[in-house]
Design a protein around this nucleic acid. Structure first.
Lengths: 338, 338
DNA sequence: TTGAAAGCGCTAACAG
DNA sequence: CTGTTAGCGCTTTCAA
């Protein structure tokens, strides 16, 4: 493999000059530069980023740290869209992305901080990490620049991107209220997620606005899982047959709720309406299509990468980005062709 | 950041000894080793993989080169599952994965070979690359070890993993034939894919077996796109109203075909049956659920990574892996509760 | 405008 | 069992 040394020899100059020429420094004779570039091309030269990273002490690489990159998680392709967005921005600014997945048994032995340090990533984006994850604390307290998805921690080196989950939930619940629903149940995610707390708050606030009393027993923990949500929905519908609508903190859980409703022989939306959250691909393909609060995960990934790299280059103005959500009304709440 | 030099000083030994102790060489006094490990832990040492990579001339990193990591491609999460599988194996054997996406404009300027060389990846896995991609040729002819997904190229440094696409297609068509269909149309992918050719072959062979004449005009090019497939299905059904079944070379195209069939007011499967290929998540959620030839993409990714790393370590016996497919019969071909 | 020299953190002969 | 030395490919003072 060609090195700048080879080029230097071929061009009859020093390696210093080659380095400067190739890196676009101004203090190099234009003629020399042309010659060097020409030779580099001929010799099929590729710079060695390892060597460069070693001396410059930065790798132009960021780490994407995700949890749950399993075969099952593909259903809810949240992670994938984040990843696509991150990748998009990162490659626009000529960085690379290395993927760390915390589900893989081997890497469990290492903390996130170690993972990042060893690969000498310049910064990291964290996605799908639970707020009670012990390694999370460690990494945000380290000196590694981090951007978190949906976890509101901010410091000198830490920022986050999220959506307005309170408002998002409100939109969903207001929609149900506007349709006349009063007995609305909520299937929330597990408590170890910031979004769960926020969405619950939105749920409550919307009820308050409409002067509908909040009944705690109508809130269940679906743990962001389809099956768990199905069980909980089944339980709720049985104990509280007055329920006419579900607000679910994720589409996956909404799928579970829909299954439960159908199992009990009830119709959607005539007997029970359902609203989800996320707008996963599946949402528009279910029967009936699922109304949901859409968040643009690709954009979240993109903005996270952008924020991180701005932080790395010292030109981040704010460390926080809050994106918008959009309520998508489909037939699981409302049939307009009756 | 701590280096082995710091450890050496603290332990009162040479850096060589530290290196050896930490890397588990046998020729180091057990007591010394313990002391060194202890100090390393105290000092919160993380090895610098850049430095190690530089001197050892290998990075313990592989590149995953994919095309089409766009927001739209999430629907068909083929890429994501491959990625998950690759990541799984890679982390089991303590490698890292860096992602190169060819859609991102910036990287288009660089050939795949350059991408790999610059990051000094030890090898690469290529997915979703068209066989007429000019950079593909270059990279397989380079000295970079490669494993291709669904592209049958084999050499000293190149291997591939695929499924038996001829057989897969046969299974699907035999199923249709067994149900009594004789006028079967096929919506194939674009020709720049190995799998298209193979699936067409399977289609023909199955017809031959059943002594049903092959009619070329019943084969359309859906380009692996939902919309294009819909158009083509519409055209076929209009020109050849005798068609009672579609075999589609991807589920995405099958979705398109189903739309077309519904538009014409025909029922699935009573009037027209549909079989897809891939078994994407959506397949079981369509109305009616889609019969399809399932391939385990997670396994494909996993096996590709395994093959690549075996090749890197010189212990690959074969450079080819062919995985199995499975026909999943759902209601788009057959209703058993009539 | 150019070159010599040092050094990033690590591994690998080689010698003791 | 341990240390000395050289060097991976590159950037960066400092001098010329």
């Amino acid at each position: 493999m060609t090195t700048i040394k080879d080029i230097a020899k071929a061009a009859g100059v020093s390696i210093t000059t080659v380095s400067r020429a190739l890196n676009g420094y101004s203090d190099v004779n234009e003629k020399t530069r042309q010659k060097i570039i020409e030779i580099a091309k001929q010799l099929n030269y590729s710079p060695n980023t390892l060597a460069r990273g070693l001396v410059m002490n930065k790798s132009k690489t960021i780490g994407l740290l995700v949890s749950g990159l399993t075969r099952e998680s593909a259903k809810d392709n949240f992670t994938f869209e984040i990843l696509s967005g991150v990748n998009q921005y990162v490659s626009e600014v000529d960085y690379d992305m290395v993927l760390f997945s915390t589900t893989s048994t081997k890497q469990r032995e290492k903390t996130y901080t170690q993972l990042c340090r060893e690969r000498r990533v310049d910064g990291a984006i964290l996605q799908g990490i639970r707020i009670d994850d012990p390694y999370l604390q460690e990494v945000v307290e380290s000196d590694i620049p981090c951007v978190l998805i949906d976890i509101p921690i901010k410091s000198e080196t830490v920022g986050y991107v999220t959506t307005d989950n309170v408002l998002g939930a409100k939109k969903a619940v207001r929609h149900l209220l506007a349709l006349g629903h009063r007995d609305i149940a909520m299937i929330n995610g597990y408590e170890y997620a910031f979004v769960s707390e926020q969405r619950l708050r939105g749920f409550c606030e919307a009820l308050l606005e409409a002067e509908v009393p909040f009944r705690e027993q109508l809130v269940a923990d679906g743990a962001f899982k389809e099956e768990k949500a199905e069980q909980e929905a089944l339980r709720l519908l049985t104990c509280y047959p007055e329920i006419t609508a579900f607000f679910c903190a994720s589409d996956l859980m909404a799928l579970g709720a829909m299954k439960a409703i159908k199992k009990l022989g009830k119709r959607i939306p005539e007997d029970v309406a359902v609203v989800g959250y996320d707008d996963i691909i599946l949402a528009s393909y279910t029967t009936p299509p699922l109304s949901t609060v859409a968040q643009n995960q690709f954009a979240m990934g993109y903005e996270a990468a952008k924020l991180l790299i701005e932080m790395l280059e010292g030109k981040a103005t704010s460390h926080i980005k809050v994106l918008e959500t959009e309520l998508k009304v489909r037939e699981s709440t409302f049939k307009n062709h009756e």
